[in-house]
Design a protein around this nucleic acid. Structure first.
Lengths: 127, 127
DNA sequence: TCAGTAGGTTACCTCAAGGAAACCGCCATG
DNA sequence: CATGGCGGTTTCCTTGAGGTAACCTACTGA
């Protein structure tokens, strides 16, 4: 009963796949991780060092979520201190390509956005 | 000193434009709103009715953020009960196009994701 | 006069995300 | 002997996002 909208598909309903994926990507770390793993398989602590600002715990949680979604894979090696490598799956790679387009958009339009913010803030001050 | 990574641009630094945009989009309502406004200018309460689950307050806040970023524009009409219309700006429209690709990806791959989740959960249970 | 619509803002409260830090086993190095 | 790296998990605590609901102006209709 929730999805009775005019002609719009069901983007605004709660069980819409798009919405599900957006919610997952809404995790800012997820996108970053996915992008980082496009550069090749990487170990836990290497990721932790590379991605500035993420905590130990959240990194662990986010990796789990991505693995559950089949976007990345985890491989443990029985080396002396156990080594664990994460890498993007083929599925993850296709998504990463899409995310890269957002990056491109962002880099292209960041100036315009910042200008819009300045203009907005200036307007607000003069009120 | 934060952005000394091998060949990767500065995607992982804090002031990276991509990261900024991702953070904004990370707001699940923002994406939904942007998409909804692609269907034409819409008034506040209409948006509130259409986008299931968003609260009065959060709708208001999200619209402000998007307006500040120059992605949507707000136009008030001095009608009897004041009428306010929101619409996507040209900038907002270009982003919306990119977001639409994520939707497409989501619709294409949702089955695979759900299967991956099932497999993962099954594996977890058997442990 | 009371209710309803339009477009908000404000106050209050709750709940969950996330940071910090400790702990785990196991090994190597100083 | 103890510190550090590896790959985590668990506990504790804080903060902030977001829900609910009341309030606002201004007008219309019953």
């Amino acid at each position: 009963m929730l999805q009775r909208f005019h002609d719009i598909p069901d983007v605004f309903s709660l069980n819409c796949p798009t919405r599900m994926v957006l919610d997952r990507l809404a995790d800012k770390w997820a996108m970053l991780l996915l992008r980082r793993l496009m550069d090749g398989p990487t170990r836990f602590n290497q990721l932790h060092r590379d991605i500035q600002g993420i905590s130990h715990k959240v990194l662990s949680q986010t990796l789990k979520k991505l693995e559950r979604d089949g976007l990345i894979s985890r491989q443990a090696f029985a080396t002396v201190p156990v080594t664990v490598e994460y890498r993007a799956t083929p599925l993850g790679e296709t998504l990463s390509g899409t995310v890269a387009q957002i990056s491109l958009w962002a880099e292209t339009n960041i100036t315009e956005i910042l200008q819009a913010q300045d203009a907005y803030d200036t307007r607000a001050e003069t009120l």
